[in-house]
Amino acid sequence: MATIREELQAAVKKLFDDDKIDYFVGYAEDYGHTFPAILTKDSDPSRLTFDRKSYDNLANFLPELRGSRVGLICKQCEVRTLNVLAAEEQVERDKLVVVGVPCPAMLDPRKLTEGAADLDSLDESYWQEKCRRCLERNTPLADVFVGERVSTPTPAEGWPLLEEVEKMSAEERLAWWRRQMSLCIRCYACRLACPLCYCHQCFVEDNKPQWIDKSVAPENNLHYHIIRAVHLAGRCIECQECSRVCPVGIPVDVLNNVLSRDFAERFGYVSGETAETQPALTRYERDDKEDFIL
């Protein structure tokens, strides 16, 4: 039986041979890492893979390739992202070939120790948090599906770290955030790894007026993180890439989770849940709940 790797490589080769796509965006394995790779017809697909370290949300590379026909590996994370991007008219679905995969749950690189054993066998304690909450392990509505379908365990509820933070007193919580913010180096990787942060110019880059001081200090850093989270209110699809890429390990997605939970509770709204999901904040319905507006 062909491995998913072989099936994937064959599928990509066929897409190129049939002239269905100009680019393929997937994961390659090389020099000890699995990383996103953009392939053309003339590339060598033999390093393409899909494994438990296929972390990146590949939808993040679509703006760069806009206008071209793109094949894209889509996990549930990418599917939800595409749903939001489509609602915001940021992707041309007809130019996209969705390559579906059975997602084996991604591992949390921070939980992996050097030379960990067989990655395929690592249990839930090594998973990324988002994978415990996954709604569907097999890519829905895939144009091409590679690999054997897997079953999706019942999604876990709640955001453990958020709940932990919320248990703190106001003073403790402020102190906790201050400590986290003092670590931030404002590399903006959290923003740039986010597939929904696609503005051509971010508010942190504005200088007339300059909304936020460029100096790196806890209060400025917090200012940045809060506005980043608010700009994702009702949009964040909880892929947790922002936290994964943070070089100093700040769990920045906690801020996003607060808002995701509010949207779930207030509006019964789950961002990017279906292809029909429309943006929550720019829609107005006469029967929208107002009970939380003071």
């Binding site: 008219e89 940021q90 696609y198 503005c199 720019t282 829609r283």
Partner: peptide
């Protein structure tokens, strides 16, 4: 227009 992304939030609201 140089920084507009065409998300149409303005059109919607």
């Amino acid at each position: 227009p140089l920084i507009c992304t065409g998300c149409w939030n303005c059109v919607n609201v």
